[in-house]
Amino acid sequence: MSVLIDADSTFIVQGITGREAVTMTRELLDYGSKVVGGVTPGRKGREVHGVPVEDTVRAFTEREQIDGAIVAVPPAFATDAILEAIEAGVKLIVVVTERIPRAEVARAVEYAAQEGARIIGPNCLGLIAPGKSKMGGIGGAADATRRAFQPGVIGVMSRSGGMTTEISNALSEAGLGVSTAISIGGDAIIGSTYAELMPLFEADEQTQGIAIYSEPGGPMEAQLAEHIAEHGSRLPVVAFMAGRFMDEMPGMRFGHAGTIVEGRADTTADKIARLEAAGIAVAERIEEIPVLLRERLDANGSGA
């Protein structure tokens, strides 16, 4: 098992004829993902690496089961593309587009919730169930992806796309491997937060532990700490905290759009305290993540 996608998941790429999307489609097919179609208005009848292109999402959903959509269209058209996919009945939408104003993201997320769909992103690299399938640019070329993301037992969630790969790579090198890795996106308002994804990992038999990347700004880490304090978890959770230097520089924006220290609760010091209070170990270096996880897995008697 894995989270959100498996080897049989079918999906489409919205904006498939864009330069970056063409490359991404090639990489997805090479990896074995079941990309069954692409949407670019006015390009019906074309093919991208053998994948048929249609004008609308409905052209696909009316004739076959589509499990997910990757939205890779420019920011001005992204919200419309997300709404189109939800309206057509797609239940998982991965938005890689950057720089969508947050009011628009919020509108799409609220509509998704109403229709029982889930959004990952925006401004993310997507997700991967190693050895099975991936959605989005995560990992890049297929061989590089196989190297950094080896199948295993740790669920990874990260606000940073690049650090999703770095952390997964460290887990793969350490022999723990990755069950599912999700790049959740770096914006202030995103479709799925750590706390919202946590129950999916809880329910996944393959997952034995969780690694998250965290950074200053926003309530997401506090939310996760609260969730775990309230509901408990069978999974040991290890967090890596980046951007510690930003605590000294309130009001300066570094990193992602969601990363700015505006109040006390936004600082890394505050977040570390909350995470630790909820029993989440906080690593100072990436290489500590597999070590801390293994200690906890051993204590749990997990076979990993």
Binding site: S160, E215, G243, R244, F245, H256, T259, R285
Partner: peptide, 14 residues
């Protein structure tokens, strides 16, 4: 680089 990598590396240097 990039976003999260820069935050991590800046901390690491310090």
């Amino acid at each position: 680089g990039a976003g999260g990598g820069s935050l991590t590396l800046f901390d690491a240097v310090r």
